[in-house]
Simulated assay, not measured.
Amino acid sequence: MKQARVGKTATISFNKDDCEGVIYPHDDALVVKMLVDNFNTRRILINNGSSADILFWDAFVRMGTDQNRLRPSPTPLNESLGETVQPVGSITLHVETRMSPCTATTMTDFLVVKTLSFYKAIAGRPTLDILKTVTSKYHLEMKFLRKMGIKEVHDEQGEVNEPLELVALDEANKKANARIKTRMKPKVRSRLKRLLAEHKDVFA
């Protein structure tokens, strides 16, 4: 499924390989983690339909950001939240998305709101456009074109309370085992098992 052409040489696309590690069927939103103001922030909703970047009050307080940095924001917000909410204010924060071995960074103007939400923040079109992001809800993934090539950021699906697999490291020693995540990509999972087996004296 081709999504977008960037420049003259690179095409950002999604295919069956991007389905690895995703639990189907699903109706999940695309939710990722980013560094916001140097704070590791999880549960950031990627919303291409939002014309604003939103930071919820609970996350703002946890970051320990000086509230005096908030600027007045008199315009009510309703399109992204399903209700009319008056922002506490707006603030510009550094946002960083890490994709080993590189990063994508920008300064984002967040509207800070006091309302209950499962999410910590919403990344809307302003940030997604600046970062030149292409998203796929079906694949629960977003991609960027960087100098080192196309980089991927995956959804957090299943990271919370993710089941673990017990891997036996030594058949002769029942206590020699390790636990690994079950929802990583199959190829990565297989390589990790081989690595544990080859170095069982270290991990057992």
Rank of each mutant, 00 (worst) to 15 (best):
M1D: 12
M1C: 08
Q3Y: 14
I12P: 07
F14R: 08
C19R: 13
G21R: 00
V22D: 03
V22E: 02
P25T: 03
H26M: 03
D27G: 15
D27Y: 15
D28I: 04
L30F: 05
K33F: 10
M34F: 13
M34G: 09
N38E: 07
F39E: 00
S51N: 09
A52F: 08
D58C: 11
F60W: 07
T65K: 10
D66R: 02
D66S: 08
D66L: 01
Q67V: 13
R69E: 08
R71T: 09
S73Q: 11
T75M: 09
L81T: 02
E83A: 13
G89W: 02
S90E: 08
S90M: 09
T92F: 02
L93R: 03
H94R: 10
H94F: 07
E96V: 13
E96M: 01
T97S: 13
T97A: 15
A104M: 12
T106W: 11
T106S: 14
V113P: 07
L116E: 15
Y119E: 07
A123V: 04
L128Q: 04
D129C: 12
I130T: 10
L131C: 06
T133L: 01
T133N: 07
V134H: 04
T135D: 05
S136N: 05
S136P: 06
H139F: 06
K147N: 14
I150F: 07
Q157S: 11
Q157I: 10
E159K: 12
N161S: 06
E162A: 09
L164A: 10
E165Q: 11
L166Q: 14
K174P: 02
K174H: 12
K175Q: 14
R179D: 09
K185Q: 10
S190H: 13
L192V: 10
K193A: 06
K193V: 13
R194F: 09
A197E: 10
A197L: 12
